[in-house]
Computed example of a mutant assay.
Amino acid sequence: MALGVKALPFTFAAHVLAIAGAIMVLVWCLYFRGGIAWEATNKSLIFNLHPVLMLIGLIIIGGEAIISYKSLPWSKQVKKIIHMALHAIALILGIVGICAAFKYHNESSIVNLYSLHSWLGIVIICLYGIQWIYGFVIFFYPGGPTEIRSASLPWHVLFGVFVYVLAVANAALGFLEKLTFLETSGVAKYGSEALLVNFTAVLTIFYGAFVILSVLSLPVDHPDDFTYSEI
């Protein structure tokens, strides 16, 4: 299935939402939550790395990796390198973000993996890693046989979209979970921080939607463009 429009309008909207989302999560963690740190006596600063790295890394950079294959007017090989590199950065930041959550829990004597958000997070990062390794080996280096690449490409795209949708949904679930804890601890339900967190979650969902729309749209024309097969 493909939309009868070019990817460019969707990718432009996604870029704008990505910038806004990055700013909003940084404002939340730096201004309202007091900052970010890997080592700190205030353990909440360690946790603050988690939403920053997960949103900017796994969601935003991961989304940019997806839409780069449709929106960039360059050769297939150049787009493939950018696609793989951005996904690698997203995966690394996602892993560090998850490690920050574990570190915060361990140093604060809080049990790990007790919530749906945490369960899905582990599943998603594992699937993301498997998807990247498969893509690297089959489509990049050393590269699989032509028959395997052709047969697996639509499934590679579909599985990638599935994992990304899960990641966006889990990010929204994470914002909800954290805000619920904060409101229980005294944060005003209609205060500026609560509104910021909710709007950041909504923006994250819209960003993910525009990323998916770009996948379903027509790629930028290029004479050397043998891009993803239509889903």
Rank of each mutant, 00 (worst) to 15 (best):
G94F: 05
I66C: 02
V111D: 11
V211L: 00
I19Q: 04
G97A: 12
K189W: 03
V197E: 02
A20K: 04
I56R: 00
L49Q: 06
L55N: 02
P142S: 11
A188N: 15
A151S: 15
V52F: 01
S152Y: 05
P51D: 10
Y134K: 07
N48G: 08
I60D: 09
L196S: 06
K6F: 07
K189R: 15
E107V: 14
K43P: 05
A2Q: 10
F47W: 09
L166T: 13
V123W: 01
W28R: 00
W28T: 01
L166A: 10
S44H: 08
A14P: 14
H50S: 10
G174K: 09
A37C: 12
I56P: 05
V123A: 13
E230S: 14
L55R: 01
A40K: 10
L116W: 13
V197W: 03
V16N: 02
W155Q: 11
P142V: 07
I92S: 03
I95R: 03
D221T: 13
H222W: 13
V25H: 01
I19H: 02
A172V: 15
V197P: 00
P142M: 11
K103F: 05
L218D: 01
D225Q: 12
T180V: 15
L45Q: 05
L26M: 10
G186Q: 05
F102S: 06
V5T: 13
F206D: 00
S115D: 11
L3K: 07
N170K: 10
L120W: 07
P145R: 15
A188I: 12
Y228P: 03
L58N: 02
K178D: 02
I23Y: 07
A18Y: 01
S44E: 06
S71P: 01
I133Q: 00
L195Y: 10
L113D: 00
G174D: 09
I98M: 14
F47R: 09
A171D: 05
A22G: 15
V168C: 01
I92P: 03
P51R: 04
T227F: 10
A85G: 05
T204D: 02
A209T: 14
I148D: 07
S44W: 05
A101S: 14
G62Q: 04
A37F: 10
I23S: 04
E230D: 14
S71Y: 03
E193S: 12
C29N: 09
S217V: 09
G143W: 07
L26S: 12
D225G: 10
V96D: 08
A13V: 15
L26K: 01
D225T: 05
S108Q: 06
L213C: 04
L17I: 11
N170H: 10
L176A: 12
V215I: 14
D224V: 07
A37S: 15
N170R: 11
I56C: 13
V163R: 04
F175V: 15
L49M: 09
L113Y: 09
